[in-house]
Design a protein around this nucleic acid. Structure first.
Lengths: 236, 236
DNA sequence: TGATCTTTTGTACGATAGTACAAATCACAT
DNA sequence: ATGTGATTTGTACTATCGTACAAAAGATCA
């Protein structure tokens, strides 16, 4: 039997507010912020443009609410996975577990909260590329703590690597992660159909494997950068 | 003595067309395509909005011309560097040389052509994130050849790694490269000022070092994915 | 049922978008 | 100097943008 909505969550369409949020998330994540109009969002959600104003006041407010809804559950899940990963004894295994704890939630397909989800991660990728102001503020506030926690955990597994190198490499990890979600088709194209860039499990395994190796690379000696052998960097 | 312009390249401002292209490149690369208006570009170039229409007909045409101008010289330079890298005998050294040949041109600071330049690379990153149609077409046409050439070269240095893995890892490389150019300040912030994310030489060394290690990671056995030890991937 | 609060609709307003086009201005060969 | 072709300017048109707001519709409870 279908549950009869108790009080608040009623409307002609069951929870139109959610539909608008989902539509906006999808459209922003695939086309960017400015390319999508409020009318586009309303149409995709089967709503009236005025409804968007009613629920979220402004277009920025809509984006803000998308972030607000995801950040809490996502960081919670990440710190859970991180805590579990940190309990791994073997240093090598722990490193992989930590990386996995960072990567896995970003790829979860669930359109609902809890874990962030691939769509929200892609949204963040696009917003950061566009230099969106609203997103920039939230990210610096919300994600830097998580990032530091992961960097610390990785540093614990690799004590001989300077923190600076860890920061760079985890930055590369996030870039690779973002790009895999933004243009998965490129992988399929370049591999001539042999790999499916849209398959999350595949992407996760590849990303974890490659990233763990990158973290384990020897430290980059900043004091004497000219020491490194440079074979074919000529012809500048 | 200042050269007197011969015939074509004359205007009140020496080559206003170039100024518009440069301004558009800068604005698109930092704010995205739709966030920048033709009037913004004209103002930044010290030109009249009508001038943009005169030279490039449409806003898409302007973006197209930016790509057209860079792609030729950039791919030329890349294949030069790649050819030089492929002549390196030692496999380990060759791999690093190939990666360097891929990375270095993308970071060159010169605002003028020849090498692509960081600004154009950042532009490509933003356009790919936004799913820009004009950019998508050009990229598939122009860059896939270069990408394949690099993938082949890397595969030659790592014969025991399946091509699929190489594709994934070079995809991650491009993502990391893009992200480093999009938000360099994040590196400075997370390293608490110890690293300068905006320093190209620094970024290149870190990226090359990490990427070479990633490429050298053991192959990911796709036939038996459950074989891999999985320590803390529980709690799904 | 009728009162009241929440939500949706429809419409409209000012701002700004991309682009077109005629007039003005320039560089330069004659 | 003057005519000519290339470029720049100024302006205007239409479309669409984000947003506001009053009216309609729905839900809830006395």
């Amino acid at each position: 039997m279908v549950r009869k909505p108790t009080s608040k969550e009623t409307a002609r369409k069951p929870n139109m507010r959610e539909a608008i949020l989902a539509a906006a998330e999808e459209l922003f994540a695939t086309n960017g912020f400015n390319a999508v109009s409020v009318r586009d969002i309303a149409q995709a959600a089967g709503a009236n443009p005025g409804s968007v104003t009613y629920h979220f006041k402004t277009k920025d407010g809509l984006l803000l609410e998308i972030y607000r809804r995801h950040c809490g559950p996502m960081n919670l899940r990440r710190s859970e996975l991180l805590a579990a990963a940190k309990r791994v004894r073997d240093l090598q295994d722990r490193l992989e577990a930590v990386v996995r704890a960072y990567v896995v939630p970003a790829f979860t397909s669930g359109s609902d909260l809890a874990g962030g989800g691939a769509r929200f991660t892609r949204l963040r990728a696009v917003m950061s590329a566009e230099g969106n102001e609203v997103a920039r503020k939230i990210i610096a506030q919300t994600f830097d703590d998580t990032s530091h926690a992961f960097i610390d955990a990785i540093h614990d597994s690799l004590p001989h690597i300077p923190r600076t190198d860890i920061v760079w490499r985890s930055h590369f990890l996030l870039g690779a992660l973002y790009y895999s979600l933004v243009t998965p088709d490129r992988v399929s194209r370049l591999s001539r159909g042999e790999a499916d860039g849209s398959d999350p499990a595949n992407a996760i395994e590849q990303l974890v494997q490659a990233t763990v190796a990158a973290f384990q690379a020897p430290a980059l000696d900043q004091a004497a950068p000219a020491r490194r052998r440079t074979t074919a960097s000529s012809k500048t």
